[in-house]
Computed example of a mutant assay.
Amino acid sequence: MNTSPVADPPLTLFGFHPAGGSAAAFTGWQRALGPRIRVTAVRLPGRGTDGRSTRYGDLDSLARALDEELGDRLETPHVLYGHSMGALVAHSLAALRATRGRRAPRRLVVAGSPAPHRAAALIRAARLTDAQMMRWMLGLDGVPAGLRDDTGWLAHRVTALREDILMCGASPATARRVPLPCPVDVLVGSTDPVVRPQDAAAWKEYSAREGSFRVVPGGHFFPRESRAEFFARLGEVLAAEAGP
């Protein structure tokens, strides 16, 4: 009989991408974070390669769909991570599960995002014209160099970005400061042009437990600009939960 102790399952990090993006934002994360973390990049509805799956017009509906889709995987030890819009999506999912008495994440990690009640300036970007939004998007340096001159791809990206921003502004839940039973850890870029440090720090109002606040060199997409330091800071947050 094999009496060897059964290893604890790895901690799962569910990653939620920024507005206008896709699950490809988490390419390379598994190697960077190592074997004690299982990285699961969440593909939001309507972001598949065919673009045919249903998109949701508000965060409440999306959170309910994600809770059903991820199902039992959320009943194992996990952390929710979201960047920009993804932070609001991850928070909505955590808040929904809290109201349903379901298992909470070990931590909610939010990056490049103002707290929900301070996201008005970001949501106002949906009022920009297509040309203005394209310039805004390019100014955030979130477009790969090889695609910056691809007008067809950029037009599609602007449409997706606008739809995602409108979704973030459509749910009353985004403004609810219901304390979560898990810590909220905040990461923000030192020169982010759309997220002020004080607006990111306001996430502390969304947890009943003490989290962390870390400033990483870079702009809105600091995980790519300062990759080594970003993963070092994220690793510090995850270390206590993932074990040695």
Rank of each mutant, 00 (worst) to 15 (best):
L11K: 02
L11A: 04
L13N: 03
G15C: 15
F16A: 09
F16E: 10
S22H: 14
S22P: 14
S22I: 09
G28W: 07
G28H: 07
W29M: 08
P35T: 14
P35Y: 12
T40E: 15
R43E: 15
R43T: 15
P45I: 07
P45H: 01
P45Y: 02
R47T: 15
G48H: 04
S61L: 09
D72I: 08
T76E: 09
P77D: 07
V79I: 03
H83V: 14
G86P: 07
L93A: 08
L93I: 05
L93C: 06
A94V: 02
L96H: 07
R100C: 07
A104K: 00
A104I: 10
R106Q: 07
R107T: 03
R107C: 04
A111Y: 11
P116V: 08
P116T: 03
H117E: 02
A119P: 00
A121P: 00
R127E: 13
T129P: 08
L138S: 01
G139L: 11
L140P: 00
V143R: 06
D150N: 14
D150G: 00
A155L: 01
V158N: 04
D164P: 06
L166H: 06
L166Y: 08
G169M: 12
A170G: 00
P181M: 02
L187S: 10
V188T: 14
G189A: 13
T191M: 04
P193L: 09
P193M: 01
V195D: 02
A200K: 07
A201L: 08
A202K: 04
A202Q: 02
E205G: 02
S207H: 03
E210P: 01
F222T: 12
R224W: 12
E225L: 05
R227L: 03
R227H: 14
F231S: 08
L234G: 01
V237H: 05
V237A: 10
A239G: 14
G243E: 07
